[in-house]
């Protein structure tokens, strides 16, 4: 569908908002979006040990919204939650996509390496399906903390041997460009923005965790509106109390994400604005270590 330069600029401005970099990257992003719209690359989305929360989050994107993503920017060859095709027709769509190759592969959820039966599609273990699909992809996006780092399925005792996409790609010996877009769930702008950057001349700077620095470059704590209160040691001591949430267990200092600038659900709110500590949901170690609880309210209450 036709789209004007002005509309690309608006979408680019939304994606850039929160980078803390001013408006400098906007024209570059607009150009990338225009290129994307001209080309409408194939998108193949597969789900593993996921809760579909990242898919739901993607539907929460505004500018570009889901209708634009489906009809203007991507050709959504397959998405388990959206595709009309069911059963054998759905498997055939995936096969047609894999045969054609050259698509962006998005994987949501972890992959049960230790128990292949714990996730199958058409009775094919997911580990086989994602490996086949990754081999023919232009780039692989691990969407959400489960696909990026293992997340909750990989938390102790990791009953299914759940593994992140990086491990699957390494095991399959694939060198396809791979980006992690963590978050539980991932923010829609992080998903779309990363896709746009990687598809536009692979123009994306990543850190050692394969995260695009544009979204995950700085800790939440450094950008937090409560930062001054932290410095003044004005801490909330009980749930719901006003103040810096550090003493309640906030993990903003360890978590790289731009939530304080970007906000969630169209900028409506975010965890800390709701007086809830950051649970570190975009952190590589999110939920993995039982010795590291989300709240510190039980410290010292038992022997």
């Amino acid at each position: 569908m036709a789209r004007t330069r002005r509309e690309f600029l608006k979408d680019a401005a939304m994606l850039a908002a929160g980078l803390g970099l001013g408006s400098a990257p906007v024209p570059r992003l607009a150009l990338a979006l225009e290129g994307l719209a001209a080309q409408r690359p194939g998108l193949v989305w597969l789900q593993g040990q996921s809760c579909s929360g990242c898919s739901v989050s993607l539907l929460n994107g505004e500018r570009p919204g889901p209708a634009e993503l489906l009809t203007r920017y991507f050709s959504v060859w397959f998405h388990p939650t959206l595709s009309a095709a069911t059963g054998d027709e759905a498997l055939a769509a995936v096969e047609r996509a894999v045969n054609a190759g050259g698509y962006l592969l998005a994987v949501e959820g972890a992959v049960p390496l230790g128990m292949p039966r714990a996730c199958t599609v058409g009775q094919e273990p997911l580990v086989d399906l994602v490996s086949r699909a990754a081999a023919r992809a232009r780039a692989v996006l691990a969407v959400g903390t489960c696909a990026s780092f293992g997340g909750i399925p990989a938390a102790a005792t990791n009953p299914t041997g759940a593994a992140p996409m990086g491990e699957i790609l390494a095991k399959a010996g694939l060198s396809v460009p791979h980006l992690n877009v963590p978050g539980c769930p991932a923010h829609p702008h992080w998903i779309v923005g990363t896709a746009v950057l990687v598809l536009h001349k692979n123009d994306v700077t990543v850190d050692k965790e394969h995260r695009p620095t544009a979204f995950f470059g700085r800790p939440v704590h450094d950008q937090c509106p409560h930062f001054a209160r932290y410095e003044r040691q004005e801490f909330a001591r009980t749930p719901g109390e006003d103040g810096c949430l550090f003493k309640l267990g906030c993990q903003g200092a360890l978590t790289h994400a731009d939530c304080p600038w970007r906000g969630w659900n169209g900028g409506t709110s975010w965890c800390v604005r709701g007086r809830a500590p950051c649970t570190g949901c975009a952190r590589p170690g999110f939920a993995r270590d039982p010795a590291y609880p989300f709240f510190r309210l039980n410290e010292g209450r038992t022997a």
């Binding site: 929360g53 929460n60 659900n265 975010w270 965890c271 604005r273 709701g274 007086r275 809830a276 949901c281």
Partner: peptide, 8 residues
């Protein structure tokens, strides 16, 4: 706070 996965 946000959804999916509320914080509050």
């Amino acid at each position: 706070g946000r959804v999916p996965h509320t914080a509050t």
